[in-house]
Amino acid sequence: MRAFQLDPCLARDTIAISQLGLCDLRLMNDSRWPWLILVPQRLGITEFHELTPLDQTMLTFEMGLVAKTLQTTVGADKMNLGTLGNIVPMFHLHVVARRRGDPNWPGPVWGHGTPVPYDAGEAERFADEMRRAILPA
């Protein structure tokens, strides 16, 4: 059996935060928005409905946990959830915290402007903050 491997585009554009029960939790390397990505660790899945019912339930639980924690931590006005997958076929779920007045508010984050990567220290600080909040010891 093949081992799960992250899509090269997701590996390039995101920073690892932690492994949850089902998903690999990652930080989108674009500091304009607090933006996390959940990637179910399943081979060959491109759509939500291809997950088993148990995996669908687990993903829903992890999405809720991550969205609530992110919203509370950053003080978001609105949480955007999306599973576009038009460019990266591997199934993944975006969890984006939005604030009134952020870049392109109230429009979508996808395809807006040029990404602004985190500096290494800021990315690690934010990833650590998310890890501690989502997975308290």
Rank of each mutant, 00 (worst) to 15 (best):
M130Y: 03
M90S: 07
N80S: 13
F4C: 03
T52K: 00
N86E: 07
R132H: 15
I45M: 07
L20S: 11
P106R: 09
I37N: 04
G75F: 11
E129R: 05
E122Y: 12
G111P: 11
A127C: 14
M1K: 13
R125F: 07
P115Q: 06
V109I: 09
F91M: 02
P103V: 14
V95P: 01
L65A: 14
D77C: 08
C9P: 00
P117C: 06
R2L: 12
Y118S: 05
C9D: 14
A137C: 04
H94G: 01
L84H: 06
V39F: 05
P106V: 01
H49P: 14
I134V: 13
L54Y: 03
D24A: 13
A76N: 10
P89W: 00
V96N: 05
N104D: 15
S18G: 04
G82K: 02
I87V: 13
C23T: 09
M79N: 07
L135M: 15
D7V: 01
D13G: 08
V88P: 03
A120F: 05
H92Y: 04
D7C: 12
D24Y: 06
Q71W: 02
A67C: 06
C23D: 05
P115A: 08
L135G: 11
L81G: 02
T60E: 11
S18L: 03
T73K: 10
P136T: 08
N80Y: 03
R100D: 11
A133V: 09
T60W: 12
M28C: 12
A133L: 13
G44V: 04
F61M: 13
M58N: 08
H92L: 08
A127N: 12
W110R: 06
L25R: 00
T14V: 12
R125S: 12
I45L: 08
P108M: 09
T46C: 01
L43I: 15
L38Q: 05
L10R: 00
D102C: 02
P136A: 03
S18K: 11
D7K: 00
G113T: 10
R42L: 14
I87S: 10
V74H: 04
F126G: 03
P53G: 05
A97M: 09
H49Q: 15
D77Y: 04
H94F: 07
R132L: 15
R125I: 09
E122P: 02
A137R: 07
H49R: 15
A127K: 08
V109Y: 02
L93K: 05
L38Y: 06
F91W: 00
E129Q: 14
A67F: 04
I87T: 13
G64T: 10
D102H: 01
L81S: 00
R98F: 06
L22M: 05
S31V: 10
L70R: 02
T57A: 15
R12I: 04
A76V: 13
W110S: 10
H92F: 06
W105L: 02
W35S: 02
H112T: 02
